[in-house]
């Protein structure tokens, strides 16, 4: 009863304003994310490491910053995030073979038109990734989400925790929503 009274006291106008504020926060977050993606030329400029195949360099929950400049070919040693068709999760592994194929219609002045065959391997794995390519023999440029440029440890563990314990996610979302509506500036 008390809380309903509190809501009534705040008024409809105020509630609408708070809802609008909330929407603005979400929209600007989305804009920043998409803008960053545009600048970095990748669909997800920040990813969280989900597996231990690059240990001891990257552990589960570490944060990686990606770029995917259209003007650059991949070179061996690059750590790439790739997604092959048929696999749901993107994989973070290192390029260990590059083959710049001379294809028909290739113009010498534009390295971009050149097809590149890649082979990757996780630093912590014994074998290369051919088994992960879902029947493909090589990885190609179109499969690659981005190249790892920067690294920050642990921060991404929040998202892993939220995935493993969905209750946490709902509690957090509900709590934030309630606070945004009720709280008075």
């Amino acid at each position: 009863m008390d809380s309903i009274k509190a809501f009534k006291r705040l008024g409809v106008r105020y509630m609408l304003l708070q809802a609008l504020n909330f929407a603005a926060v979400i929209a600007s977050g989305l804009m920043i994310w998409k803008g960053l993606g545009l600048v970095c030329n990748t669909e997800s400029p920040i990813v969280v490491v989900l597996s231990g195949s690059m240990e001891p360099a990257f552990y589960r929950g570490d944060l990686l910053f990606l770029t995917n400049p259209a003007s650059e070919q991949y070179v061996t040693g690059d750590i790439t995030v790739y997604k092959v068709p048929g696999a749901d999760i993107p994989i973070v592994h290192r390029v260990i073979e590059t083959h710049d194929v001379v294809s028909e219609g290739y113009v010498a002045a534009s390295p971009l038109g050149q097809k590149q065959l890649l082979l990757t391997k996780g630093d912590n794995n014994n074998a290369n990734d051919i088994e992960l390519y879902q029947g493909l023999d090589w990885l190609e440029k179109r499969h690659i989400v981005g190249k790892v440029r920067g690294f920050m440890p642990y921060i991404g563990y929040v998202t892993i925790a939220m995935n493993d314990f969905p209750q946490l996610k709902y509690a957090l979302l509900g709590g934030l929503g309630l606070l945004a509506l009720v709280q008075r500036e």
């Binding site: 360099a57 070179v75 061996t76 040693g77 290192r94 260990i96 073979e97 590059t98 083959h99 710049d100 194929v101 001379v102 630093d123």
Partner: peptide, 19 residues
């Protein structure tokens, strides 16, 4: 991460770099 690579060009012109 230290790696040793071989760079060469194949018979058909493909440029290779293999760790």
């Amino acid at each position: 991460f230290v790696y040793l690579g071989a760079e060469y060009t194949s018979a058909d012109g493909t440029r290779n770099d293999v760790v």
